[in-house]
Amino acid sequence: MSAPMDVPFLTVITVTREHLREYAAASGDQNPIHLDDELARANGLPGVIAHGMLTAGLMAERSQAWVKEVLGAEWEMSRFNTRFRSMVFPGDEISIGGLAKPGADEWTLDLKARNQKGEAVVTGSAAFRKVK
């Protein structure tokens, strides 16, 4: 069995309001807390926040890119779990990395998305199985 491997942290995005509009249109999640400062503030937030699933989507892509590059194209994602720990705001720079652990017939990547202050904003894990 192989040893665990580092998934290097890479900066994947500096969040803009345009990203939030694009993600809202692409995902169908038009919750105004992601699009309208006034409504976000009326709901107790300091202003618009990024969709948690935008960061999660970037995390899934970071894991897929690492697996394809290091393990090869014959692995596919079987599970993906994320926990949203801290809010992400326009202007935040997000980097994603972690640790990949081999199992009997799958690899599990434990991942963290950090903001520019080093705070974990989303944590998650992605499991990959070999395509039959």
Partner: peptide
């Protein structure tokens, strides 16, 4: 549209978090 929003190169099939749509 979704793949572009999350930086994915997948086009022939939906990226994993497409399920959120």
């Amino acid at each position: 549209r979704f793949a572009k929003a999350v930086g994915s190169k997948m086009r022939a099939e939906a990226p994993p978090t497409y399920m959120t749509t």
